[in-house]
Nucleic acid binder design. Structure first.
Lengths: 336, 336
DNA sequence: TCGTGATGGTAAAAGGTTTTATCAGATTCT
DNA sequence: AGAATCTGATAAAACCTTTTACCATCACGA
C-alpha cells in the first residue's frame, strides 16, 4: 500500500489528468481564451474530481489583486467596531474578498506594524474604523498605494468616509418625543469634547427651540443617575421627556427616576442612543432608542472598497447615513 | 520633470542599486548563505534607502508559509469572540502573523465559503471559536491540511482546545461566598442544555454540599427578577447568597432584591459570571464576578497555533484555563 | 493552387522571492 | 608547485498561476 500524495493539487495535475497543456487547463477553468466546449467541460470535471483549488497566492502574485482587504480598528473591539466589521465582511465574502482584522489599540507602533504587514500582503484596500469621529488615525493613511475608506471616522478632505448622521438621529429622537406631546424635553449627554455629542446637542437645540437644556457628563449610568438627582432636586418646572446621549446614560436615568418615584413613561418619556441591546432591551421599561445602523455602515464601506479595489471611481466625501428609531416602551404608546 | 516610478520596489531594484546579484541581495537581507559583512551592510542600507519591502505573496508562495491564520467564529461577533480575537491577534502580530476574521453566523454555507477561501490562501492554521462549548462547528474541520485549534469550543478527541475551567470558576465563586460566612447559597443560572451550565452547577453542588438549590432559566435579567420573586415569595429559610450563571442574571437579581427591600450585600451577597463590564461595573452595588480570562484564552490559542504553524508539536487535549475572581462590592468586604 | 481566416491548442514569459548548486579566486597545506 | 580548502558571490531553478504570442490544422473562396 503506497502512501498517497498529500500535496495540494496544482493546475499541473489537472492538465496532466485531462491530457491538455497547462495553458489550456487555465483557459478552460477561467473561461478565458478559446477553448472547445468539450475539452472545457472535461477539464472542469477533472479539476473537480481531483479536488483542484487554485493557489490564491500564485494567482494574486500575477494578477496584482490579492482579493484581501485590511480593517484597521482603533479600539480593542468595542461594541461599535464589531457590527461594522460584520457588515463589511458580509458584503465582501460573496465577492471572494477576505478581511484581515487588525486591532491597533490606538498604539502608533502597533498601527504601523499592522499597516506594513497589510501593504506587504498587497491588500486591495484598507478600511479604517474608529470609536469616535474626531480622533486622527494613529498612523499616516494618506498617500498609501491602496485605497482607504473611513468608517465611523472622518478622514482628510476628499477622502471617502461613512458616518452615522448624528443630526438626523437626534432630530428623530426629539421629533418622536414631540409627536407624543412632550414639551419640556431635557438632553442628558456625554462629554462635550466629542464631536458627535456637539452635533447631536446642536440638532436637539434646534429642534426643541426655547426651553432647551443640555447637561454634559460622561458616558456612564452613574452620570444618568446624578443628572436626574440634580434636576429633580431643584425648584421650577420639571421635564416630561429626556433625550439621552447613549443607552447607558438612559439606563441610569430610568433607574434614578424609578428610585424617586417618577414613572416612565407616564410622567417622563426617555429616549436613548445606540441601541446597544444588552442595555436597551433590559431596562424597565425597555428603551426606545436611536440605532446608528452600524452594520449598514459596514455594508456601504465594504461596497465602496470593493469598487475602489476594482479600479472604479467612488465619489469622495463624507456619507452620513440616516439613523433609525427603535420604539420600545420607554416613551409610552404612540396613540395615547 | 519626469514622472517618477510609483511601482513598489523589488529585490531586483535593491540588487541593481547595490551592484550585486539578486541572490546576494536576498542572502544579505535574510542573513542566509555566506556574505561579506561589508556587502551585507551595503545591501541593507540600500534596501532601506529605496524603501524596499519584500512582497509577502511571492515569499509565501515559495516558502509555503503564508504567515496568516484564519479565525472562524460562530456568531456575529458577540462579547465572547472579541476579547478572544484580540488576544489571538495580540500574540501573533509581533511574530508577523496576520489574522483573517471570518464570521460564519453559524451558517454552513458561509462557513464553507470562508473555509475554502482560507485554504486557498494557504493559511498556516485555523482557530475556531464558538459561543458555547457544546455546539459542533458548522463545517467539517477534521482532516484539514492545516492545523486547527479550538477556543471556547471542544473539538473531536485528540484535537487541541482551550476552554475556561467552569468548574474552577464556580468553585471560586462559592468558596468566596463561604469565606464570607454565607451559608445558604442559591444558584440561579441559564438553560440546562448548556454544557457549561451543567458543569458549573455540578461544581456548585459539590462545593456547597447539602442545601444546594439550583434554578435553571435563560440568560436574561428578566429571569433574574422572576427567580428572586419566586424564591422570596415562598415560605421557609431564605438564601444569604446567590451565585448567578452570568452577569445579566445577576443584575436582574440585584435589582429584584432592591425592589423588595433586601439589601445587597448586607442581607444577600451576589456573585456573577462573565465579568462583562458594561454590566458588572454598572450594577448597584458593582458586581463581584468571575472572569473567564477570554483574552488569555486567545493568547494561549495564538501561541499554540504559532507552534503548530512552525511545524512543532503541541500536546493534544482540552486545556482548561483557570478563571479569576473579580471582587467588587456585591458581596461585602472580606473583613466583615 | 494559393491565400485568408477561423479554430483549438501550446510554449514560454512573467510575477517576486528563496534556495541549491556552482564557480572563480584567494589562502593554506603538503 | 600542486592540491586542497575556504570565501564570497552568482546563475538558475523552483513556487503556481495567468497571459501573450505563436503554431498547426482545417475550411473556404478565389
Amino acid at each position: 500500500m503506497t502512501d498517497r500524495d498529500t500535496r495540494r493539487r496544482t493546475i499541473h495535475d489537472v492538465a496532466k489528468a485531462a491530457r491538455v497543456s497547462i495553458s489550456t487547463a487555465s483557459n478552460a477553468l477561467n473561461g478565458t481564451g478559446r477553448t472547445n466546449v468539450e475539452t472545457r467541460e472535461r477539464v472542469k470535471r477533472v479539476a473537480k474530481d481531483i479536488g483542484f483549488r487554485p493557489n490564491a497566492l500564485a494567482r494574486s502574485l500575477l494578477t496584482k489583486r490579492s482579493h484581501a482587504i485590511g480593517m484597521l480598528t482603533n479600539d480593542t473591539y468595542g461594541r461599535l467596531t464589531l457590527p461594522m466589521a460584520a457588515g463589511v465582511s458580509e458584503v465582501l465574502v460573496d465577492q471572494g474578498l477576505s478581511v484581515f482584522l487588525c486591532a491597533t489599540n490606538n498604539d502608533p507602533r502597533l498601527a504601523r506594524l499592522h499597516l506594513e504587514a497589510l501593504l506587504d500582503r498587497q491588500v486591495d484596500g484598507i478600511i479604517f474604523t474608529a470609536t469616535r469621529l474626531d480622533l486622527p488615525p494613529p498612523v499616516e493613511l494618506t498617500k498609501l498605494p491602496v485605497p482607504v475608506v473611513y468608517v465611523f471616522a472622518e478622514g482628510p478632505p476628499d477622502s471617502i468616509s461613512f458616518v452615522p448622521d448624528d443630526i438626523h438621529g437626534a432630530r428623530l429622537a426629539v421629533e418622536h418625543l414631540k409627536s407624543l406631546s412632550r414639551s419640556r424635553i431635557l438632553h442628558v449627554t456625554g462629554p462635550h469634547d466629542y464631536l458627535a455629542v456637539r452635533r447631536r446637542a446642536e440638532a436637539y437645540r434646534e429642534s426643541v427651540g426655547s426651553g432647551a437644556e443640555i447637561l454634559y457628563g460622561d458616558w456612564s449610568e452613574e452620570w444618568g443617575h446624578s443628572a436626574i438627582d440634580e434636576v429633580f432636586a431643584r425648584k421650577g418646572p420639571r421635564p416630561d421627556a429626556i433625550f439621552c446621549g447613549n443607552d447607558e446614560i438612559a439606563r441610569g436615568v430610568i433607574e434614578a427616576l424609578r428610585d424617586i418615584g417618577v414613572r416612565v413613561p407616564e410622567d417622563v418619556a426617555v429616549v436613548g442612543f445606540d441601541n446597544w441591546e444588552v442595555i436597551s432591551k433590559q431596562t424597565r421599561p425597555p428603551l426606545t432608542t436611536i440605532d446608528m445602523q452600524l452594520k449598514e455602515l459596514g455594508h456601504q464601506a465594504g461596497l465602496a472598497i470593493l469598487e475602489l479595489a476594482k479600479g472604479e471611481e467612488v465619489a469622495p466625501g463624507t456619507n452620513r447615513l440616516p439613523c433609525s428609531l427603535v420604539v420600545r416602551q420607554s416613551c409610552g404608546s404612540m396613540t395615547r
